[in-house]
């Protein structure tokens, strides 16, 4: 028994070290956002809130975050509107064709984003979608759609279809049956895919770097460009810290209310 406990402890220490490693960048961002030095320094030179104040005054980052919020929200909404019916169709239509279609729907997950992006810039430059909101939202929908379909399909697999049949026998229209029975059943899948999809869109750099215009610059793209050309800007560090804090809160809430880690 003693030996078992020892092994358990060693395992715990190693596991927590790995976890610490994973959180290093996040911790460094948080600590350094309060550092009064213009350049990165460790240990921090002094405590300050000035970078947060500068963030509140900075139009560019606020605009960029607004753009990201807008694009992510629109993309999630449309992806849900497209993805839920599509998953229901796949679920109901048990034929080889739907198998093929469902793997087609999941294919954006398989193909590296950067390869698609190189095709996308060429296509967008011809159809005049480069840098437009519509263009960005459309691309982000494709990024999100596979997650929606996969998560909704996995919730659908728990659905007892006899209840739908029963409702139909009792005179409910198929639309009503969908709204009253199917939709509540797949709620967790929908919610979690919405949250996850939102994060994917909100944080996407690869695709957006290629197609984001100057008017619709999302915040990660702005951050990428500045990190490469201006170095580590304390202002960007403060912005990151704010966004990270929100992300952590949302993730913990999602876990508390919908235990989302089971689905991911």
């Amino acid at each position: 028994m003693k030996e078992k406990k020892l092994w358990g402890n060693i395992n715990a220490v190693v596991a927590l070290l790995v976890l610490l490693f994973m959180l290093v960048p996040i911790i460094v961002i948080f600590v350094n956002s309060f550092n009064s030095s213009q350049f990165f320094s460790f240990p921090p030179e002094g405590f300050t809130l000035k970078w947060y104040e500068r963030f509140l005054e900075n139009r560019e980052y606020k605009t960029a975050i607004a753009v990201s919020l807008k694009i992510a929200t629109l993309s999630v909404l449309v992806a849900l509107l497209l993805g839920i019916p599509a998953s229901y169709g796949i679920y109901r239509w048990k034929s080889p064709v739907s198998k093929v279609l469902s793997s087609l729907f999941l294919s954006p997950l398989m193909l590296p984003g950067i390869v698609w992006a190189i095709g996308l810039i060429q296509y967008y430059s011809i159809v005049n979608l480069t840098g437009t909101t519509a263009g960005l939202v459309a691309a982000h929908i494709i990024l999100i759609l596979p997650y929606v379909i996969r998560l909704v399909l996995s919730s659908l697999s728990y659905l007892d279809f006899d209840t739908v049949n029963a409702a139909r026998t009792l005179g409910a229209t198929s639309g009503k049956a969908f709204l009253k029975i199917v939709l509540p059943a797949i709620k967790p899948g929908v919610i979690i895919s919405a949250i996850f999809g939102f994060m994917v869109s909100f944080n996407d750099v690869t695709i957006s770097t290629f197609i984001a215009g100057t008017k619709n610059l999302t915040y990660p793209v702005r951050m990428y460009v500045e990190l490469r050309t201006e170095g580590l800007d304390p202002l960007a560090v403060a912005v990151s810290a704010v966004i990270m804090a929100f992300t952590i809160v949302i993730a913990l809430l999602a876990e508390k209310f919908w235990s989302w880690s089971k689905y991911l």
Partner: peptide, 18 residues
């Protein structure tokens, strides 16, 4: 006024694509 900061390379390709 919105500033788009960065090197000329990225900017230059942007104005061509747009």
């Amino acid at each position: 006024i919105e500033l788009l900061l960065g090197g000329t390379g990225d900017r230059f390709s942007k104005i061509y694509m747009e």
